[in-house]
Amino acid sequence: MRSDMIFTLAAMAALLAAGLYGYLGDEPFFLTLAAKAAIFALAGAGLNIALGYGGLVSLGHAAFFGIGGYAAGILASHARNYEPLMSWPVELAGTTSAPLIWIVAMLAAGLFSLPMGLLSLRTGGVYFIMITLAFAQMLYYFAVSWPAYGGEDGLSFYVRNELGGLSTMDPWSWFLICYAILAVALVFIAVLTRSRFGLALTMARENPLRLGNIGVAPRRVLLTAFVISAIVTGLAGALYADLNRFVSPSMLSWHMSGEIMVFVILGGVGRLGGPVAGACVFILLEQVLGGFTEYWQFLLGVALIVIVLMGSGGLAGLFERTGVRKAAAHG
């Protein structure tokens, strides 16, 4: 637990340092990358609640990421075009207010995750993976074939949404907003894992039969975790849409689900700071290796294999083991 906390703080400090470097060195591209890392980390932190703490291998989290993205995109585009979202039975206008958009994104992702979780939790193992994947793909094809919001071409909006008096188009402010939201989410997850619910979730993952035996239905606990997980990833989707001022069906594709899972596994499954480290390293590799070769994802694959083979826990696990070895050497 303590090593997890140190690792989390270290990963967050590194991300902040990257942002500061971009700000002081006046490199807006670098700042945008740092903001992207923070958003990906948030998406991974969401998945980590289901995957790491609940043991639910979801290959459908792109659904929540994309729902969050489309919630932001649709609300903003209506507001900018002065078209109401709907005029019957009540008139509902779009909005460019970021907090409102975030809330809608989280609600939408949470609502969608409810039937998805209910159905997929009836199964386990590889079937759970397939059903979550199927749900996400269903949405993906829906988005591709639905012409109202750009279909396959996606939907762009020209200005980021508004948050109080902050200038969200300024890369430094935008990075800080994303970073602050990530920090709040991590604190929330840390609190969650130390609560009564967190304890029950650990038991649901490790021994559901026993949890039922002490009077708690494991499926209710897992479903709750799945919904919370979707809400966090949905929020990340809304931020991602704002970052790019663009949403497209690719946010919903299973490729995206896989990428979010890579952040978690690379950084450390079930480790608070795992997704932060995973997303940062992913983007770093993408930039550095991508500079050498177009085939950087091949090298990413190699890196992933090495890290997984070196033992569970990804980068966070590596950190724990070196920490233990050092403590042993000193003691």
């Binding site: 609560s195 650990t202 038991m203 021994n207 026993r210 949890l211 002490i214 708690v216």
Partner: peptide, 26 residues
């Protein structure tokens, strides 16, 4: 039938929650 990563104390605490408001406190 126990959870390997949890301590004995955590197991007993979790069982006690049954009559003390349940586990849905976040």
């Amino acid at each position: 039938a126990l959870a390997p990563s949890m301590t004995g104390l955590e197991h007993v605490v979790l069982a006690l929650l049954q009559h003390r408001g349940g586990v849905f406190h976040f």
